[in-house]
Design a protein around this nucleic acid. Sequence first.
DNA 1: GTAGTCCGATTGTCCGGACAAACGCATTGA
DNA 2: TCAATGCGTTTGTCCGGACAATCGGACTAC
Lengths: 245, 245
Amino acid sequence: MQLELRVDRSSPVPLYFQLSQQLEAAIEHGVLTPGSLLGNEIELAARLGLSRPTVRQAIQSLVDKGLLVRRRGVGTQVVHSQVKRPLELSSLYDDLEAAGQRPATTVLVNTVVPASAEVAAALAVAEGSEVHRVERLRLAHGEPMAYLSNHLPSGLLDLDTAQLEATGLYRMMRSAGITLHSARQSIGARAATAAEAERLAEPEGAPLLTMQRTTFDDTGRAVEFGDHIYRPARYSFEFQLLVRP
Amino acid sequence: MQLELRVDRSSPVPLYFQLSQQLEAAIEHGVLTPGSLLGNEIELAARLGLSRPTVRQAIQSLVDKGLLVRRRGVGTQVVHSQVKRPLELSSLYDDLEAAGQRPATTVLVNTVVPASAEVAAALAVAEGSEVHRVERLRLAHGEPMAYLSNHLPSGLLDLDTAQLEATGLYRMMRSAGITLHSARQSIGARAATAAEAERLAEPEGAPLLTMQRTTFDDTGRAVEFGDHIYRPARYSFEFQLLVRP
DNA sequence: GTAGTCCGATTGTCCGGACAAACGCATTGA
DNA sequence: TCAATGCGTTTGTCCGGACAATCGGACTAC
């Protein structure tokens, strides 16, 4: 059976992108079954009226995503992995929304403070200079789920409390024209202190999942430093890693 | 000052790879400072006697690694991020060795068992079929650090106990010709059971960091399922995420 | 003075072609 | 029988060129 593919040359969407999207959809919907060959690049290019480099660019983007594997002398095959989602910089808000949980947020602190040594180092600003500080409690189904403490360089974003409660911090940054690029994370665990236990409705000494993260925009500037704690019964970090050859 | 770059056409190493390595080294050693422009692609190609596509391929690989940023109409700049290492599929053994800790391993169990429902689902084999089971205690500086439980499809690897203690599981898989490709991870936390507490020399109920991971090779077949627990005071997960636009 | 327009610079996309390298398989040879 | 060789297939690398889209700054018009 021939996979139905076609591109629209009048569209402003790049041809290689049109193709890669169609291939990805075909894999997602099971039209291209795991392990099946994709047909060689030359023939595929001829069938679509495209050049080989364009077809290769489309295929390469899917290889980068981990959906396809190329083998010289063999061909390009669909990976038969159970889970195919690539790793992404996840936002707790988006994670919860994707899980259909309708997250609720309570902003507990939203102020400007002098940067502590730790915060200054993470954000690469002078110690004692002004930074925004936000502390939020995130709930799902009315139950506390995580306590989020964030520091941001001042002047970067207008941190409106109402907006912080209605949406997520990452979403606000994106709409402010900040393009997130990378993040350095550290995930650990420890026992809850008395104060933390009360905030999260856990007994004192209960195990907590902790995450510290510094996020960078596309110019490499630190735009956010977060120190978060999660209730492990209600949240865990799930992601897919890819190995680059 | 002109960055000194040159390629060796008689080398079997691809030209784009030679160039990207030199650029990466220049960034790493601070010859190319963060924020500095790289010079336009056309001129760079002419200077090296290469074509523009080849130069673009070299630059693109560094953009994918998060070391460079391209801006249309502006040029290609070096990202000024503090930490630049990309995310990789990490092995606890390699992590420890890189930290200069000389890890020691004790193999507690190395046998063949019928697959439980959970293991069968993770490895995509039939429930009850034979799988290898390995349990190891990993120590650093003579102190227990992690308890590692792994299941592998049978017939994949010769699991020699002595070799397991001398090196890591991932390293054994690689030398057996298995090319690791991706992994699905879940990181969480919970309180130690009595048995776990004893094995790790922690009090009962102490917080533990947990990780479950299924690793896939380049054809998408599951090659390993691990269920690990770590002492949070001695280990945490650190990694860098990249956002794909 | 300010807003809009134009223009040079630079990357993004796309083409068509050429040869090399690796793989799988069939054939050949010991 | 079994290993070595050869061959077709397919991806990997590389070239040179063309035009489009976008950015930033200079210029112009009001």
